[in-house]
Simulated assay, not measured.
Amino acid sequence: MSSLLAIAGVLFVARKIADHWTEIDASGLGPTTWACLGFAGVAYGAANALLARAWWHLLKQLDTHVQWPTALRIYGISQINKYIPGNIFHLAGRHTLGMAAGWPARPLATSALWELMLLAALGALFGTLAIPLLWSHLPPLAAIALWAALLTLMYAALRTGGVPGIAQAMWLQTCFLAISGTVFLSVLLVTHEADTRAGLLLPAACGAYVLAWLAGLVTPGAPAGVGVREAVLLFLLKGLFAPSDLLVAVVLGRIVTASGDVFFYLSALTLQTEAEQHA
Rank of each mutant, 00 (worst) to 15 (best):
P140M: 08
P140E: 02
L141T: 10
A142I: 06
A142Y: 06
A143S: 11
A143H: 01
A143P: 07
I144R: 08
A145R: 09
L146W: 11
W147F: 15
A148F: 04
A148G: 02
A148Q: 10
A149W: 14
A149D: 11
A149T: 15
A149I: 11
L150D: 05
L151Y: 14
L153F: 08
M154R: 05
Y155W: 13
Y155F: 15
Y155G: 14
A157L: 15
A157Y: 10
R159K: 09
T160C: 12
G161T: 01
G161I: 03
G161K: 01
G162W: 00
G162M: 00
V163K: 12
V163S: 11
P164R: 03
G165V: 06
G165I: 03
G165F: 03
I166L: 15
A167S: 15
A167F: 02
Q168C: 14
A169M: 01
A169C: 05
A169W: 00
A169G: 01
M170T: 14
M170C: 13
W171C: 11
W171M: 12
W171I: 08
L172C: 07
L172I: 03
Q173K: 07
Q173A: 13
T174V: 09
T174Q: 09
C175G: 14
C175S: 09
A178R: 02
I179H: 05
S180N: 09
S180V: 01
S180T: 09
G181V: 05
G181A: 04
G181Q: 04
T182K: 07
V183G: 02
V183K: 06
V183A: 03
F184K: 07
F184D: 05
L185S: 04
S186L: 15
S186M: 13
V187N: 03
V187H: 06
L188P: 04
L188N: 03
L188A: 05
L188R: 09
L189F: 09
L189M: 12
V190E: 02
V190W: 12
T191L: 10
T191S: 10
T191R: 05
H192Q: 12
E193M: 06
E193L: 14
A194E: 08
T196L: 10
R197G: 08
R197T: 09
A198W: 07
A198D: 01
G199Y: 07
L201F: 02
L202H: 04
L202C: 10
L202I: 07
L202D: 02
L202M: 14
P203M: 01
A204T: 02
A204G: 04
